[in-house]
Design a protein around this nucleic acid. Structure first.
Lengths: 147, 147
DNA sequence: ACAGGTTACTTGCAAAGTGCAAGTATTTTT
DNA sequence: AAAAATACTTGCACTTTGCAAGTAACCTGT
């Protein structure tokens, strides 16, 4: 396995639509059980959902415990490692708020509020790339080209 | 197709490892050609890379133009829509810097610098979810459960 | 101007992953 | 005790992936 640089590590584990949607359901909608994840608008297949929950748990993004009040239910929740994905999820949401025509005005306002805090630096980096530069140019050592 | 809520829209198009790695290569490493993307550490298959480039172009994340100095080459670059993914990529990078043991110290420092700017609000949301709440609780209308 | 290399792809095919439908096991409800 | 609910698993057709090998256009050196 060959995982050298910035984004790749995470992408192999959580960089898949269904995994991220599970984490979204927990963080953004407060969902906690298999049945709740299943009934999301995107309707994952049961076996896929089960597989993703198992992988997310194995990789330490979520934990499950049996609901004491109803032992048929498993309660899933985010670990610290999973909670730390929230800033990334919010950026995906911010992007969607801007480009998805179906996003409700409500959500766009929420994003605007969040964004007020953090525009400065990222705007600088976007400019850099727009002008043909790269974020890591001169900031971090150049990536190796060989295997 | 059923694309109602916050993150789903983008995830269907760019929410795939190879697509994001292409965008990373352009934004973070300044890569511009098919050959440069191919020689990344993660070594995508040639057909997969070609397919992703075509899809990213079709969906307006990148554009290609023939290199005037060497007409064998196609120069890929990010559109505004693609540039706007940079904040999200930086958050993925920030997460990786924290959890990927292979990340160099150099990169962790870069991330710390970036983060100094934007910690406040996201920390608040993480707390909310950690305590069993959800980011959208009372902030945005509750998601519909039916199809 | 021709030969050989470079670049950006495409094609064929086996293996892996996805998604629907149906089933099972445990627990709760009636 | 029977029925419903919940969290899964299993079987199977279909799709996607990834390796290996090709092809077409262009450039480079002689």
């Amino acid at each position: 396995m060959e995982n050298t640089c910035p984004l790749n590590y995470g992408l192999e584990i959580f960089g898949d639509r269904w995994s991220l949607l599970v984490i979204r359901d927990i963080a953004f909608w407060g969902k906690k059980t298999y049945g709740e994840f299943l009934s999301s608008n995107e309707r994952p297949a049961t076996n896929i959902l089960a597989g993703r929950l198992a992988r997310l748990e194995k990789n330490g993004f979520i934990v499950k415990r049996t609901d004491e009040k109803d032992k048929r239910k498993e309660i899933y929740s985010l670990t610290e490692k999973g909670l730390d994905l929230i800033p990334m999820l919010m950026e995906i949401g911010a992007w969607s708020a801007k480009y998805d025509p179906r996003q409700p005005e409500e959500f766009k306002q929420f994003v605007t509020m969040v964004r007020a805090d953090q525009q400065r630096l990222t705007a600088h980096f976007i400019d850099k790339v727009r002008n043909g530069g790269a974020i890591f140019a001169d900031a971090v050592g150049r990536q190796s080209t060989d295997s």
